[in-house]
Design a binder for these strands. Sequence first.
DNA 1: GATGAATGAGCGTTCATTCAT
DNA 2: CATGAATGAACGCTCATTCAT
Lengths: 204, 204, 204, 204
Amino acid sequence: MTVLPISKIEAPARGRRTQDSRARLLVAARKLFVERGYHATRPQDISREAGLGHGTFYLHFADKQACFLAFTEDARSELDSYLQRRLKDAPDVESAVRGSLEAIHEYSAAHPGVLVTAMADAAVIAADDAHPVTLVDRWAMQWAALLRLPVGQGGQAMDPDEAGIIGAAVVGIIHEGSAYAGRHGKAPGPTIDLLTRLIIKALT
Amino acid sequence: MTVLPISKIEAPARGRRTQDSRARLLVAARKLFVERGYHATRPQDISREAGLGHGTFYLHFADKQACFLAFTEDARSELDSYLQRRLKDAPDVESAVRGSLEAIHEYSAAHPGVLVTAMADAAVIAADDAHPVTLVDRWAMQWAALLRLPVGQGGQAMDPDEAGIIGAAVVGIIHEGSAYAGRHGKAPGPTIDLLTRLIIKALT
Amino acid sequence: MTVLPISKIEAPARGRRTQDSRARLLVAARKLFVERGYHATRPQDISREAGLGHGTFYLHFADKQACFLAFTEDARSELDSYLQRRLKDAPDVESAVRGSLEAIHEYSAAHPGVLVTAMADAAVIAADDAHPVTLVDRWAMQWAALLRLPVGQGGQAMDPDEAGIIGAAVVGIIHEGSAYAGRHGKAPGPTIDLLTRLIIKALT
Amino acid sequence: MTVLPISKIEAPARGRRTQDSRARLLVAARKLFVERGYHATRPQDISREAGLGHGTFYLHFADKQACFLAFTEDARSELDSYLQRRLKDAPDVESAVRGSLEAIHEYSAAHPGVLVTAMADAAVIAADDAHPVTLVDRWAMQWAALLRLPVGQGGQAMDPDEAGIIGAAVVGIIHEGSAYAGRHGKAPGPTIDLLTRLIIKALT
DNA sequence: GATGAATGAGCGTTCATTCAT
DNA sequence: CATGAATGAACGCTCATTCAT
């Protein structure tokens, strides 16, 4: 049996305090960005929520926008692992689509408001200056990649030129469809079924 | 013989000045919201752009948000008349879908950036406090109404419970699909064809 | 007897409030810059001292530095009129020199600390970015102009190339000499005599 | 036979590390104060430039101001040795004056910006609180001491009461004269000649 | 002695809104 | 109805300094 040296277990010391602070700031940032939105959240609020001094915020993020982008990136990669888990065994596109929707629903249930906040405010942030690759773009491209899988048994690959637009359209279906369902209190199960059907039909 | 000063002759009828000022403010607001976004536009900028005093802004709008909402409402009703014109003679759903996309494209070409601004910033505004009916909701409902038309020849009406979600999904396809195409310099013609096909297939 | 229209006397109305505010800000700025120095004076302090809101400061000055420069320029032009009065009847260079020193002393007595503050902090401000013409430069040039007067009865004009340096040297004598005398509690009369003698001898 | 690790061999004697750190901080401080000025230089910048931790700064200086004063004092004593070398063999006051100017020029050429920074910012520092003896005072007193030498062959000693003011005036001539010449690209040789002449005439 | 993450008072500045004219 | 000077709470951010390691 291997015994880890104490330093590995208990004495993070060097550079660990830093990591810890950053993590706490990101947790706090997520909470506040989701609750209040980007513009109504002040760096100072994030620091206080994290139990740290105001200055510490700027030790970890160049500015408020960088913090928001880090939050956004975190959300994206978390969602990605939810998706990964569901997609790795999907036998066909339909299962992949359904799996994706289920993953997204699962993630949204576990982290309410995060996706909506990340997408909505990202648009506003992006408008400020040239942040060329938006969150939606990345997701659209992932869908495009997924859709190069043949659809149906004798299916053919997508025209690569159209794939991006189709990917974006799928993102749109999911985003607006889920948001609408959420706003109007529709049950998630039937909504997932419905959106899956819509996407599959659109792709056939 | 008394000569009236020009200002007396040409002065608009009572209440006209008011209308005129409001109209000029809205034109200015649209220009600046589109160019700079909601948060980067100050009421003061709008007033100056309109050639009016800063205080006049508050004679016509309760606050900045009300002005943005008025802009948004204007855009929506303008787009509606574009849509109306195309849709009134549409023989079937496919023509209606294609007509809608063409109308949206036509409107966007005539008023670049307006739809994107109205939709993107609306999300942020809405987050601030409870503005229950969003622009997207209204569009989704219009699509839902449209889609109660039978699809195909022997088509049946949509399940009314699902109609809203489907309408929202269509809005999503159009919004994200067009935005992606725009960001990546795709030609409008083929994009419209593609999105029409996607929507029609999804609805069949 | 001419009667000024009331508007000239009492009804400043249009644009006058503005002028008044600016004047009050400048008075306040002078007081605080002199008492505390540039870096220890906040725009907010100036506004409060002037009995105005913080925002009003930025209606009249682009930033803190612009306010300081305006103060500096005011001081320079006030001193100029003191100098003008003394110099216009000076029969020879010696009287001009003595008159200048007396004018400077008179100004310093009436406005204690102003010249020292304007000169000392100006150097620091200037260092921040390229403000090419310093206060000292302007005074040096004025002295250079004055010194082109013949010195002594059979005097000849200064070599123009050297005039600037000599002007600057005179500024140095006055500045450091007076400052030293002030710091060490020397009486102004004998100090003026002494510095006049030094300058005259240097110039002969 | 035991081989000491290199670190043990080359490590400076106890207390040397301290001296070394202090010296490196002073070198860094001088560089940055000269390049950016007092207010634009942060203790943190100095530490980093010196290759030391931020906290180390406060092991050697009570605060930022103390560090600046140490820099200033260093510059003064370096300039003193330049002056000493020139002055120890000066046969008369004229040679002493010329030698001083040459020494100052030589020092400024070897350490560009140091004197200007030390003098200009010192004024601002001094304003902050009561640091009674300024750099200029010290130099003025040195000149005063020097000037108690008889001027000319049959010269008499200076009136001691006036000596300080005269010393300060000489500092003023040199400071402003050289600064002006520097700003306007005048050659150092003729400038030294000119200032020497001015000072000698003033003192006769 | 050396370190650098942490601190928080304080900075200069902005801007949605009001109100006397 | 129109004006624009005035407002001041609030913003994002900095930096001299401390202290646990």
